[in-house]
């Protein structure tokens, strides 16, 4: 296993949190992991991105400059990073916010209307988890059970009522 994941979108879409879920699942499975957020003014309403490495081997740079999994949650992110993706890598993007096809033919591209699916199911703000479900399905990075177990750990005790919603969102994405 050697995943170099880049999740990118607007600040406020839960980019960092979904990255945290991935990193935590990796940790739980005793993989080497790193999680690096963009920080500073970018977070405040601008673009946000998050680099995650999950690997069987020791991780060198925590910065993902050539991802093999790109998750794009807005158009500027897809346009900015599409060409950086490794050949045969994965691109998963939110088609409710990005009205565009992936131009590259040497990658595994898939789309999901994550924001729409989230709001249709009363899960506003959980498009990040919907798309994460789709990422799992496409990449087979982790099983559904593994990621749910990890969410149970990441969701703070005070916000346990959100646990069910997060799980539901992931399942919707996974079964899409």
């Amino acid at each position: 296993m050697d995943y170099k994941i880049l999740i990118a979108g607007f600040g406020g879409q839960g980019i960092l949190f979904s990255g945290k879920v991935i990193a935590n699942t990796g940790l739980m499975l005793e993989k080497e992991v790193s999680w690096l957020p963009s920080y500073g003014p970018e977070m405040r309403g601008g673009t946000a991105n998050c680099s995650i490495n999950v690997s069987d081997n020791q991780i060198g740079s925590p910065i993902v400059s050539a991802p093999n999994v790109l998750v794009a949650m807005n158009l500027p992110s897809l346009e900015k990073y599409e060409n950086d993706v490794d050949k045969d890598g994965f691109i998963v993007y939110d088609s409710s916010l990005i009205a565009k096809e992936v131009a590259r033919t040497d990658v595994n591209a898939s789309k999901i209307p994550a924001t729409k699916l989230a709001s249709d199911n009363g899960l506003e703000g959980l498009a990040n988890m919907v798309i994460l479900g789709k990422v799992l399905k496409e990449t087979k990075m982790f099983t559904l059970e593994q990621i749910i177990k990890s969410i149970e750990k990441v969701v703070p005790a005070k916000k346990q009522e959100l646990l069910g919603k997060n799980v539901k969102a992931i399942e919707i994405g996974y079964n899409y």
């Binding site: 790193s34 999680w35 690096l36 925590p62």
Partner: peptide, 10 residues
């Protein structure tokens, strides 16, 4: 530096 300070690792 900012990277080592901001990143998470086990």
């Amino acid at each position: 530096d900012g990277t080592i300070g901001q990143m998470m690792e086990p």
